[in-house]
Deep mutational scan, measured.
Amino acid sequence: MIINNLKLIREKKKISQSELAALLEVSRQTINGIEKNKYNPSLQLALKIAYYLNTPLEDIFQ
């Protein structure tokens, strides 16, 4: 099972779900679904998340 630290990292960087969704060009519901482990992001989306949060991919999804 993948450990998902997206919410923790996003909140630590003081970025809202809506702000991150806008940067990634996805819906806020997509971010919410990823954070609640209801949706697994594509590799492309996971890499974009890591880029915009300036955090290694391995720290977000373990």
Score class of each variant (00 low, 15 high):
residue 50 A to E: 04
residue 32 N to W: 11
residue 31 I to H: 01
residue 25 E to P: 04
residue 20 L to Y: 02
residue 35 E to A: 02
residue 6 L to D: 00
residue 25 E to L: 12
residue 60 I to H: 01
residue 27 S to N: 08
residue 27 S to H: 06
residue 45 L to I: 07
residue 57 L to P: 05
residue 28 R to I: 15
residue 11 E to Q: 12
residue 27 S to G: 06
residue 24 L to D: 00
residue 55 T to W: 06
residue 16 S to E: 05
residue 16 S to R: 06
residue 28 R to S: 11
residue 48 K to C: 08
residue 31 I to Q: 00
residue 55 T to S: 08
residue 11 E to K: 11
residue 57 L to I: 13
residue 14 K to R: 12
residue 54 N to Y: 05
residue 4 N to I: 07
residue 53 L to S: 01
residue 51 Y to L: 08
residue 36 K to G: 09
residue 43 L to E: 08
residue 29 Q to D: 14
residue 37 N to H: 13
residue 4 N to M: 05
residue 37 N to C: 13
residue 38 K to H: 13
residue 7 K to C: 07
residue 20 L to G: 00
residue 46 A to M: 15
residue 21 A to E: 02
residue 50 A to K: 02
residue 48 K to Y: 04
residue 55 T to Y: 06
residue 30 T to Q: 07
residue 32 N to D: 15
residue 21 A to N: 02
residue 19 E to F: 09
residue 47 L to H: 08
residue 50 A to N: 01
residue 58 E to P: 08
residue 11 E to M: 14
residue 57 L to C: 08
residue 55 T to C: 08
residue 40 N to A: 15
residue 48 K to I: 04
residue 4 N to D: 03
residue 3 I to G: 11
residue 17 Q to K: 07
residue 29 Q to Y: 10
residue 1 M to Y: 13
residue 15 I to Y: 07
residue 9 I to F: 10
residue 58 E to C: 12
residue 16 S to H: 04
residue 30 T to A: 07
residue 18 S to E: 14
residue 48 K to R: 12
residue 6 L to M: 11
residue 60 I to K: 01
residue 30 T to S: 05
residue 30 T to P: 01
residue 35 E to L: 04
residue 29 Q to E: 15
residue 20 L to R: 01
residue 22 A to I: 10
residue 11 E to G: 06
residue 61 F to R: 02
residue 41 P to S: 03
residue 33 G to V: 09
residue 47 L to M: 13
residue 54 N to F: 05
residue 60 I to Q: 02
residue 34 I to L: 08
residue 7 K to H: 06
residue 21 A to S: 06
residue 54 N to H: 09
residue 15 I to M: 15
residue 8 L to Q: 14
residue 5 N to H: 09
residue 17 Q to E: 04
residue 20 L to W: 02
residue 34 I to T: 02
residue 11 E to F: 07
residue 45 L to D: 02
residue 16 S to D: 04
residue 62 Q to G: 14
residue 44 Q to E: 13
residue 26 V to M: 04
residue 55 T to Q: 05
residue 10 R to P: 00
residue 3 I to C: 14
residue 6 L to A: 02
residue 32 N to E: 15
residue 42 S to R: 06
residue 35 E to G: 01
residue 31 I to R: 00
residue 2 I to R: 12
residue 33 G to H: 15
residue 60 I to L: 10
residue 32 N to H: 11
residue 59 D to E: 14
residue 47 L to W: 07
residue 28 R to K: 13
residue 15 I to D: 00
residue 3 I to M: 12
residue 30 T to K: 07
residue 6 L to C: 05
residue 32 N to T: 09
residue 6 L to W: 00
residue 2 I to C: 15
residue 44 Q to V: 11
residue 62 Q to K: 11
residue 49 I to D: 00
residue 1 M to E: 10
residue 22 A to Q: 11
residue 41 P to G: 03
residue 46 A to K: 15
residue 33 G to P: 01
residue 19 E to S: 09
residue 34 I to S: 00
residue 19 E to Y: 10
residue 37 N to Y: 11
residue 53 L to T: 03
residue 18 S to R: 15
residue 12 K to H: 10
residue 60 I to D: 01
residue 12 K to D: 07
residue 46 A to P: 02
residue 32 N to P: 01
residue 52 Y to T: 08
residue 1 M to L: 13
residue 41 P to C: 10
residue 25 E to Q: 15
residue 11 E to I: 13
residue 31 I to W: 01
residue 31 I to T: 01
residue 33 G to I: 10
residue 27 S to Q: 05
residue 53 L to H: 00
residue 25 E to W: 08
residue 21 A to V: 03
residue 41 P to K: 01
residue 6 L to G: 00
residue 59 D to R: 08
residue 38 K to T: 13
residue 37 N to T: 07
residue 29 Q to C: 12
residue 60 I to E: 02
residue 46 A to D: 00
residue 49 I to Y: 02
residue 17 Q to M: 11
residue 29 Q to A: 15
residue 61 F to G: 02
residue 61 F to W: 09
residue 47 L to C: 14
residue 60 I to N: 01
residue 27 S to D: 11
residue 27 S to K: 08
residue 58 E to Q: 12
residue 22 A to P: 00
residue 1 M to S: 11
residue 43 L to C: 14
residue 58 E to A: 11
residue 15 I to G: 01
residue 29 Q to G: 11
residue 34 I to Q: 02
residue 29 Q to M: 09
residue 59 D to F: 10
residue 1 M to W: 12
residue 3 I to S: 11
residue 28 R to Y: 09
residue 17 Q to I: 13
residue 60 I to S: 01
residue 3 I to T: 12
residue 29 Q to H: 13
residue 54 N to A: 13
residue 61 F to P: 02
residue 7 K to V: 06
residue 50 A to Q: 04
residue 35 E to I: 03
residue 33 G to C: 15
residue 2 I to L: 10
residue 3 I to A: 09
residue 26 V to C: 07
residue 56 P to Q: 07
residue 32 N to G: 08
residue 6 L to S: 01
residue 40 N to S: 14
residue 51 Y to H: 10
residue 46 A to N: 01
residue 13 K to F: 14
residue 11 E to P: 01
residue 39 Y to M: 11
residue 40 N to Q: 15
residue 33 G to Q: 15
residue 57 L to W: 07
residue 30 T to L: 15
residue 62 Q to T: 11
residue 61 F to N: 02
residue 37 N to V: 04
residue 36 K to L: 13
residue 20 L to A: 00
residue 5 N to E: 03
residue 4 N to E: 03
residue 6 L to F: 02
residue 1 M to P: 12
residue 11 E to S: 08
residue 56 P to L: 06
residue 51 Y to Q: 08
residue 31 I to C: 02
residue 55 T to R: 04
residue 57 L to H: 05
residue 51 Y to V: 07
residue 7 K to A: 10
residue 23 L to A: 15
residue 6 L to T: 02
residue 55 T to P: 03
residue 58 E to S: 12
residue 38 K to P: 04
residue 47 L to V: 10
residue 10 R to C: 07
residue 49 I to G: 00
residue 52 Y to F: 14
residue 52 Y to R: 04
residue 42 S to D: 09
residue 21 A to G: 05
residue 42 S to E: 05
residue 56 P to D: 07
residue 62 Q to E: 10
residue 35 E to F: 02
residue 40 N to K: 15
residue 18 S to H: 10
residue 36 K to W: 06
residue 36 K to P: 02
residue 52 Y to P: 00
residue 57 L to T: 04
residue 3 I to L: 11
residue 41 P to D: 03
residue 49 I to T: 01
residue 3 I to Y: 09
residue 34 I to M: 05
residue 21 A to K: 01
residue 15 I to T: 04
residue 21 A to P: 00
residue 33 G to S: 15
residue 48 K to S: 06
residue 45 L to Q: 04
residue 30 T to C: 15
residue 10 R to M: 07
residue 44 Q to P: 09
residue 9 I to H: 06
residue 10 R to Y: 05
residue 47 L to I: 11
residue 50 A to C: 06
residue 13 K to H: 10
residue 43 L to M: 13
residue 60 I to P: 02
residue 8 L to Y: 12
residue 10 R to I: 04
residue 34 I to P: 01
residue 12 K to L: 14
residue 12 K to E: 11
residue 5 N to I: 07
residue 43 L to K: 12
residue 19 E to C: 10
residue 4 N to A: 03
residue 20 L to T: 01
residue 45 L to P: 00
residue 40 N to E: 13
residue 17 Q to Y: 04
residue 18 S to W: 12
residue 22 A to G: 10
residue 37 N to L: 09
residue 46 A to S: 07
residue 36 K to R: 13
residue 25 E to D: 13
residue 18 S to Y: 11
residue 8 L to V: 14
residue 43 L to H: 13
residue 22 A to Y: 08
residue 59 D to L: 12
residue 23 L to M: 14
